[in-house]
Amino acid sequence: MDAIIKTTTRLLVPLIMVFGFYVSLHGHISPGGGFPGGVILASAFLLLVIAFTEKEVEKHFSEIKIGDLKSVASIALLGIVLLEVIVRPDILHLQTPLTLWSGGVTIFLNLFGAIVVASGLVIIVYSLVKEEWKSKKSKW
């Protein structure tokens, strides 16, 4: 791609990632939640993959690491759900509503769910785009 698209991508990708984390962390206050936040995070990676070439992307991302991140986030999600059911930490529920820590363990559930969804969609996008890069007919 040309320099305009690359420069715009360099400017936009951190902003999109910040927006994704905002949506997923404020899921219990404003509309949004773990799933849309994770998909926004993955769409930042989608923009990156479309704009840059294979070598530039693979310098910074390795999919094995993303798979590890996904496993760790899934185990953390399972642990938090079990902790919530078994222990039921009532201290976190005592804050006033509409503040950041008001939702109890919901904020952690949102964060780890967002990481699970984002890394899964990144793996899907990366698998599809790698096939496109390998085939000689493609224009990317």
Binding site: V23, G32, F35, P36, V39, A42, S43, L46, E132
Partner: peptide, 25 residues
């Protein structure tokens, strides 16, 4: 339903379009 609106934009209009473009390619 702003929740569904966000999910609709992000999932269908971004990722659906991407997967369709790959299939068309």
């Amino acid at each position: 339903a702003p929740d569904i609106a966000i999910t609709q934009i992000v999932v269908t209009a971004v990722f659906g379009t991407f997967i369709y473009v790959v299939a068309v390619n």
